[in-house]
Write a protein that binds this DNA or RNA. Structure first.
Lengths: 253, 253
DNA sequence: TGAATAGTGTCTATAAGACAATATCCC
DNA sequence: GGGATATTGTCTTATAGACACTATTCA
């Protein structure tokens, strides 16, 4: 057993019980995973959406998702879906919340264990450009703070993409969670390339939080955290004084 | 499909699809809920445990739990389990995390949506006194901060209660989550009676956080938050100057 | 009166916000 | 040089921690 402290020595009696156990004695729900693959581009929060080509909710836009397999861990299922639908591997991926309202899927009872993943925009752009059923949609958050209510998805042409099932609510919870975690977890770095300027990091934080931050204290706070270290290099091809490039360094906690 | 419609008007074709959908075409996991019913007594974090009287893990101690019903929402299943096993209703109850390692239950694949609930100690003591298969166990946290690793359960006689399945890990996640939420959510009040002193509130915070807090700044912070209001009453039967009783008031955020 | 905790006031250290001054790049 | 942003430094304000002092109850 991978969980827990002690490996229970099972008695003969317990082994007999387990051998006789019939899991099909009562009906079971379906269990799926959905993954919100999040990035920040042009200082805006974005998510990968896929247009459904099957009933139900055909034509609507959904998060990458799929049913879990019986011998598959939840995070493994999420990683599988992410690789299959977005061609993305080795990214920050974490369980978010489990959505299980009885009527959330018209087919049958489907409980979905929602996950969220973070990836730099450059990584995501490779490979999601050509397909017309994939969009890197802007997330429009119609609330302030951490209320976690449903959000909307808008494509590059300012067209709203209608979301399938309860995915607007799932995405609202994603934004809520990211805003809550940003303060104490080193999330910003997951959304940036290896080397980045402090202004870029601040823009990522602002995109996630949905509000402007004070430049001076942001700078001081990040530098004091010991989470970044200067590389000595400077950004290039900017029309102003180039900023120093920093990189993330594992430390603290 | 048209782009703007919100409430899906299902087409004839979609309705036919749904009517023909066969949920039993592939095997499904079992889905359960487990509930950590938490309280603070004698300035220590406690949880209600039940000794298992069936295989598997017979004799070990577990959180109240049960399989969800097909037409039952997740939080409704958690509330049902809580009422059945602890006789407790109308308490703060929130989804925590979903545990789904393939081998976490030896019977079959069981995914559990873990919840946590908070209740004042006085409320819980009523009705959980007599039964020998129920214990309000102390939670011993062998780590600092918010690591969320497994914890141990100790009864009143300092005897460790071996935990069933991965419940030690679930409880670790409970402590981690409570510590993270305490800063910004008004959790402390859920663990106290209607009227309480600031010292009692501080003791609850200290029990959850597992560390001592500065009295002066705790006092200032709570009073400045606007979350409590003085009642004009004072505590009785104490061997020292009685403190003023406060009550929780909904405000802020 | 003494033990024990409540509650108040003050001082200091730290962090955030505001703002000004200077630096450095491209055009 | 001008535009634009980087980077540094200073000042002000808010908050946390430390500590001292007074207040109030019961034994």
């Amino acid at each position: 057993m991978s969980h827990g402290d002690k490996q229970p020595k099972r008695s003969r009696e317990e082994r007999d019980f387990l051998a006789a156990y019939d899991a099909s004695a009562f009906p079971h729900p379906s269990v799926a995973v959905d993954v919100a693959l999040i990035t920040v581009e042009d200082a805006e929060l974005r998510v990968l959406l896929i247009q459904r080509d099957e009933h139900p909710d055909l034509g609507r836009w959904s998060l990458p998702g799929g049913f879990i397999q019986l011998d598959e861990a939840l995070d493994a299922a999420a990683a599988r879906v992410l690789a299959r639908d977005a061609g993305v591997t080795d990214v920050w991926l974490e369980q978010l919340y489990t959505f299980g309202e009885p009527d959330r899927d018209p087919r049958t009872r489907v409980i979905t264990v929602a996950h969220h993943a973070l990836v730099p925009a450059a990584t995501l752009r490779r490979g999601t450009e050509e397909r017309s059923d994939r969009r890197l949609a802007r997330i429009v958050v119609p609330w302030k703070g951490d209320r976690g209510e449903p959000v909307r998805a808008i494509d590059e042409d300012d067209v709203e993409l209608p979301l399938a099932f309860d995915h607007a609510a799932i995405l609202g919870t994603v934004v809520q969670r990211l805003r809550g975690k940003l303060d104490y977890a080193a999330l910003g770095f997951e959304l940036l390339p290896k080397r980045f300027t402090l202004r870029e990091l601040q823009e990522v934080h602002e995109a996630v939080l949905g509000r402007r931050l004070n430049k001076d204290s942001f700078r001081r706070r990040i530098l004091a955290s010991g989470l970044v270290t200067a590389t000595g290099q400077k950004e290039a091809d900017v029309v102003h004084r180039p900023a120093e490039l920093f990189r993330f360094v594992r430390r603290r906690r």
